[in-house]
Each structure stands twice: as C-alpha cells, then as structure tokens.
Design a protein around this nucleic acid. Structure first.
Lengths: 138, 138
DNA sequence: CATATTTAGTTGCATAGCTAACCAACTGAG
DNA sequence: CTCAGTTGGTTAGCTATGCAACTAAATATG
C-alpha cells in the first residue's frame, strides 16, 4: 500500500533486520543495540559518551542508558575523564574483551549470509546508498 | 565505524527518516506511525486489525495500540465484524476523512523534496532494493 | 454434539529511541 | 576574578515496537 514510500519501506526493513541481528546476538544474550554499543567500545576503549553517541548515531541520552545496561552486566566500566571533569571514559571489562572476536564474527556471519542471498554487489550498493541518503538528510 | 553494516546503516537511516516524516506530520499533531495507520484505514475503511498489521508490517499487538490511540482522538472507530464475532472493522470518522488528502499530500511533499535532493532514480532504486531485501529476509 | 485446536484481538512486560529540562564543570569576556 | 554562556552527561517522561501469555470466538475432529 505504501510500496513507493521511502519512510515506510526503510523503517519496515529496519524492524526486520532488527530481528535478524537479534538472532545473531542471542547466543551472547545481547540485543543488537547492546552488541553494537559493546563493539564500538571494544574498538575504541576509553571512548567518551558523546563520541559513542556520534559513532552509533543515537542521542546522548540513549548512549547513557545503553552504557548503564552494559555496566550493570559487568561488560563495561566508566572511568573519570583525564582532562575534563565532566567527561567519562568507557572501557570494556576483561570479560567483554573476550567477546570482541565472537561479536564481530557473529555480525559478519549474518552479513555474509545475506550477501549470499542478495548478491554481494546489491548488498554493498544498498548500504552505500543508505549512507548517501543519510548524509543528504537534515 | 560500521560503515559497511547493513543493519547499522539501515536502522540509523530509519531513525533519521522518522524525524523527517515527524516534521511533515507535525501540523496534524500526528506521529508518523499514527499518520500511516490513519492513511491505511482511510484507503481501506473497514479494514480488520490483522489486515492492518500486515499492511503496516507491524505486530498485531502494535496495531491494537495504534488504533487505540486514534480512537481516543476520535479519528477512528471500531465496529464489530459482520461474519466473525472475533473481528473488528476499523473505520475512519468524518473528521479523519477530512484529513485524507492533506496527509497523503504531506507525505508526498517530503518524498518529492527528497527526490529532488537525491535524484528520482536513486530514490526509486533504493526503495525498490529495500523491498527486495525485505522479501528475502525471514 | 462435545471437546480440542486454531485464530483475532488484547494485555503485560520489556527494550530502544527521542526531546526537553536539568546539573555540574569548563570557558571566555569584561 | 567573576559571572554568563556553553558543554558533557543524566534524568524524566513519552512513543513505538516486540514477544509471550491470555480471552473469546470459530472450526475441526472424533
């Protein structure tokens, strides 16, 4: 009914992908949000909240909650920023460090599987276009 | 950081589009979800909850809530199904009927604007690809 | 026909996201 | 140096979504 609508089709696809990636991270008992938050910190230990929000393209408030949850699960910890007393560095715990490879692999496995179904080029084109549309939007 | 990730880029784009369409429907004091729910009913008055959920690609439970909200705002009403006592038909109120054209136009205006920025073909290709990926997913 | 199964819709509970308002710490202008 | 403004992060309150469990109605099966 809204076959030509960018909004409708993108949001519907996003919800569907949410389920696919949720399955992929289920073995770790992490939601996609949690897994991506963790992956971002694992790639840049000591990242600040504001950087994290920017990296994940979420609001700062949302980043606070995401980190809260992973701190509660002993996967992340906050340390006071060195120069600026308002800032907090986010560090992975050793437990989280052990997951780094598996998480990246879990996500890569889904991606590879979908590339198989959709064709590597179509897949890459779509992602590229998504980014391109994104940067054109307000 | 997740530049090549289908999940990441699609969900981020979806959130961004959410904001764009939210602006478009703001004059009606409707969120995008509400506006699309209403538009779906306006296109098919008497639609059943299950059909609505399928049309909007949301869970039935979510459809229930969406309709609840619009019933509370006197834009929709439920009528008992004719044949099957479990079913409910969803009908637009006269007040909602007045909005039909404006809502469709508001959405079309955003789309046209974006087509201008992104190029009509790129826009259409992307939407087509989104649907194509969607039907390949579980 | 009586009971078991399926189906339409709802409710409870949880997650992730947002904006707005806030606090505390930093910065800069006078 | 002080006070106004800015900035990093948090909190409050809201929406949309999902899954799982439920109710009630319809259907099927024996």
């Amino acid at each position: 009914m809204f076959d030509e609508c960018l909004y409708f089709n993108t949001t519907a696809l996003a919800r569907q992908l949410e389920r696919v990636w949720a399955d992929a991270f289920k073995p770790f008992e992490l939601t996609p949000s949690q897994a991506f938050t963790l992956r971002a910190v694992l790639r840049k230990p000591g990242i600040l909240h504001s950087e994290l929000a920017e990296t994940l393209k979420i609001a700062r408030a949302t980043a606070t909650r995401a980190v809260d949850g992973l701190v509660a699960r002993h996967l992340l910890e906050r340390r006071p920023g060195r120069n600026d007393g308002r800032e907090w560095e986010i560090h992975p715990t050793p437990e989280a460090a052990n997951l780094k490879f598996s998480l990246d692999t879990a996500s890569a496995r889904v991606s590879e599987h979908l590339k198989g179904e959709l064709g590597t080029d179509a897949f890459a084109d779509f992602v590229r276009q998504a980014r391109s549309i994104s940067i054109h939007l307000p």
